[in-house]
Computed example of a mutant assay.
Amino acid sequence: MRASEVREAAAALLGAYRSGTPIPPLSATYPGATIADAYRIQQEQVRAWTDAGDHVRGHKIGLVSAAIQRQMGVHEPDYGHLTAGMFRSEHRPIPAGAFLQPRIEPEIAFVLGAPLRGPGVTVDDARRAVRCLLPALEIVDSRIRDWRISIVDTIADNASTGAVILGSTPIDPADVDLASTSCVLLRNGTVAETGTGAAVLGTPLNALAWLANAVGGLGVSLGPGQVVLSGSITRAIALAPGDSITADFSGIGRVTAMLGEEDAP
């Protein structure tokens, strides 16, 4: 893609945030777009957010299951950026109007205590860099109409990121076997999905090492204090105004997100 097309695509996505109206798939508008182009579009939006006063607090990892990778025609995950404005409190209703087509998924969040910079980061390196674990919920959203996304569309759209809700009690990673950690996802008190940490590339630490190496190739280091969402343990579920969603992780704890009613002031 030409630089002007990258800026044009980023502007269309930013416009969807403002208007609340999804846009047609970028993969149709720019049929020659590559994964590298998609990350350029993503970065253009990150620059716009930081220029407006927001700042990057971490990253999210997506496409961690083999089934989703096969569906998207890729062989590795993708990533997006988490800015400060995307973090929401679990104790207050989240305005429904902030999203276009929200879904929600449970994830294990890493808070880093040491820098990680690839290439060459191993799982042991990743483990040593983690200061603590937190239970997390990610509201995923798409600025692409009807979620008709290819790999190019989701990467360009900041890996379909919407919002992050973190639990409040940090857990020492040495106390948890992340691969066998189980999760029950409840919608309004009823079990909606279950899963284990093994769904995330065998263990969420594999996802963290992958991310460090992926962004390291671009000269980016993951820094102390940053938050990394390691990828969904279950399928994403639909999220509607008024819903209360709880993720209960064995050994890590619970986190709840409440989506406000559409007509709430």
Rank of each mutant, 00 (worst) to 15 (best):
G32Y: 13
G32S: 14
A33S: 06
A33M: 06
A33G: 05
T34R: 14
T34M: 07
I35H: 14
I35N: 09
A36Y: 09
A36N: 11
D37W: 01
D37M: 02
A38M: 06
Y39N: 05
I41R: 01
I41Y: 00
Q42K: 05
Q42F: 03
Q43E: 13
E44Y: 08
Q45C: 11
Q45W: 08
V46L: 03
V46Y: 03
A48E: 10
W49D: 14
D51K: 15
A52E: 15
A52C: 12
H55V: 05
H55P: 13
H55T: 02
H55M: 06
V56N: 09
R57I: 09
R57L: 11
H59T: 02
H59G: 04
H59V: 08
H59Y: 15
I61W: 00
I61S: 00
L63Y: 10
L63S: 05
L63D: 01
V64S: 07
V64C: 12
A66R: 15
A66M: 13
A66H: 06
A66W: 14
A66Y: 13
A67H: 04
Q69I: 09
Q69N: 07
R70F: 10
Q71C: 13
Q71S: 12
M72F: 13
M72V: 13
M72P: 10
G73A: 03
G73F: 02
V74A: 02
V74T: 03
H75N: 15
E76G: 11
E76L: 09
D78R: 13
G80F: 02
G80I: 07
G80K: 00
G80D: 07
H81D: 14
L82E: 00
L82I: 08
T83K: 10
A84F: 04
G85F: 00
G85M: 01
M86L: 04
M86T: 06
F87A: 10
R88E: 15
S89N: 01
S89Y: 04
S89Q: 06
S89T: 11
S89L: 03
E90R: 12
E90M: 07
E90D: 12
E90N: 08
H91C: 14
H91F: 09
R92D: 11
R92N: 06
P93G: 06
I94H: 00
P95K: 00
P95L: 03
P95T: 06
A96I: 04
A96R: 01
G97E: 02
A98P: 13
F99T: 09
L100T: 13
L100H: 00
L100R: 07
Q101S: 02
P102D: 11
